[in-house]
Each structure stands twice: as C-alpha cells, then as structure tokens.
Design a protein around this nucleic acid. Structure first.
Lengths: 134, 134
DNA sequence: ATTGACCTTCCAGCAGGTGGAACCCCTATC
DNA sequence: GATAGGGGTTCCACCTGCTGGAAGGTCAAT
C-alpha cells in the first residue's frame, strides 16, 4: 500500500503519516522506487494512532500506548494510568475553559454591541486587577 | 520602570513582555543604557494583554482589542463580535473535550487496571473504525 | 575590585503538524 | 517519442505563544 491509499483509509493526511514515520511511530518498508510501502500492521498502527490522537492523547502517550499494545504481557494498570492522567488533563482543561466561558459570556451579555463606544468588555479588560501596581 | 518591575506587577514573565514588544503589542522606551523603560501606559497595555490572554483571546484578537480600546470612536459591536467569536471557539473546544472525556471515562471505567493484560482501552484503540479498510 | 542581581541580544526548542518548492515515477494518450 | 496527469520523494519554513539558555553589558553595594 502506498501512502495515498493509507491516507485514504486511515483518515490521516499523508503529511501526518510521513511525520509519524519521522518521529518513529511507524516504520513502513520502501519499495525499489523509494515509495513507502505500508503493511497491514503499519496501517493498523496508524489507525490506532488516529484514534488515540482523536481522544486527545499526546504523541508521547501514543508512543507508550503502542508499546503496551505490542507487549502482550503488559499489565492493564499501566494503560489505565496513562488514560487516567489524560482524563485529569482533560478535566483541568474543561474547568479552565468553563471558567473563561463564564466570564466571557457575562461580559458579552453586558455589551450592547451597537454603534456606541461604551463597552463593558474593554472596560473589564482595562481595569481588572488594578491592585497589583498602585 | 524596568522590565523586572513590570513583570512583578503585571504578572507576566519578562520573557513574555520582551516577546510582546517583538511582535509589536507594546513599545516601551529605552533608557541610555539600553534598558527598556515602561511608562504607565505600557504597564496598562500589558495588564490588558494579560487579562485578555487569561480569557483565552489569541494574540491577534488582543491586537484588535487593543486597537479598539485605543480608538474612543469604536463601536462596541466590533468588540462584541470578537468576543462572541471567541466564545464560540471556547464552546466548540469544550464540546470536543467533553466528548473525549465521555469516551475516555467509559474506557477507563471498563479497564480493570490490574496485572492482567486484558485491556478494553487498548482494545478500543485497536479496533475502532475498522470499516474504513477491509 | 568583585559580587550578585539586574538587564541585553540571539538562537533553539516545545507540540503537532501544515504548506510549498523542486524534483522523481508511472501510466495513458496522441 | 513527447507530454500530461496524478502519484510519490525530500527538505525547509511556518504556525501559536511562548520558554530556556548562552554570552555578555550595567549597576549598586560591599
């Protein structure tokens, strides 16, 4: 299988697949003309990567997960730990965004959004935390 | 005011302040020895930036917001539009993360997390979307 | 004179790709 | 045989928003 076919069926852009090879996540063979040749196992790895990335795992997480996946003697605890840490990262991110959202929604709500210059959004950005410097 | 003082009272690292100067968000003066000298207005701009960044606005948003802030003839509608677009970005991001979270939490829940190799997390990553390539 | 805390510039790197240039390969068609 | 098209290849630069570090200048106090 050439890279274009793999891109088609894995959903990953060819560029990304090349990048994954570059950083050692997948090692396709090469045919005589220099083209990458992907085995079923390579395609499988790429599908795995696509799915893991879609769940937001970092590339390093993916690397660990692939290693564990290949190791049939792994303890599921190791996998679970990676997933749990990622879950916590996601929760922290959601909390952060939710807080931003609340503040921002409040400001947007207070802003008339007309031709007049008065704007609570700018006012807030300009005046918040003035206590730091006298 | 030197950069260290500004860093202290704005909460922004000195590195970040230099970076903001480099990309033209703030233009401190220079004293004879080459040190950056920040006026009250510069400090104010930096505080504005810190606050806007904390709300998740991009640097380009910040640039626009600062321009609008400086223009006393602005229409609040322009500000509101930037904020609303950002709010939508945040909402999309939250939705994305929430979906990830749900899937991941489900998988983590199903995983025993013990010494045995059986792992629903890996199983899911390995088998999802197999229909793309026969 | 020297120490230590400032400040300066410049260069490299992070994550995770993406875009583009310049070029090779393969098949089909005229 | 020339050419057009649709693959593929490499390499290099760029994106966001900083951050770290090296190498060096400055300033106040000892």
């Amino acid at each position: 299988m050439n890279i274009g076919d793999v891109a088609n069926c894995s959903g990953l852009p060819a560029k990304t697949i090349r990048y994954y090879e570059e950083i050692g996540l997948v090692q396709p063979l090469r045919s005589a003309n220099g083209y990458r040749t992907f085995r079923e196992s390579d395609v499988h790895r790429l599908a795995f990567l696509g799915r893991a990335r879609a769940l937001g795992f970092t590339i390093e997480d993916c690397r660990s997960l692939l290693k564990l996946y290949a190791d049939t003697d792994r303890a599921s605890a190791e996998v679970k730990q990676i997933a749990e840490e990622h879950l916590e990262r996601i929760d922290r991110k959601i909390a952060e965004l939710t807080e931003m959202r609340a503040t921002l929604a409040h400001l947007v709500d207070a802003c008339a959004g007309d031709q007049r210059p008065d704007c609570p959004i700018l006012a807030d950005l300009a005046t918040a935390q003035e206590e730091d410097c006298h």
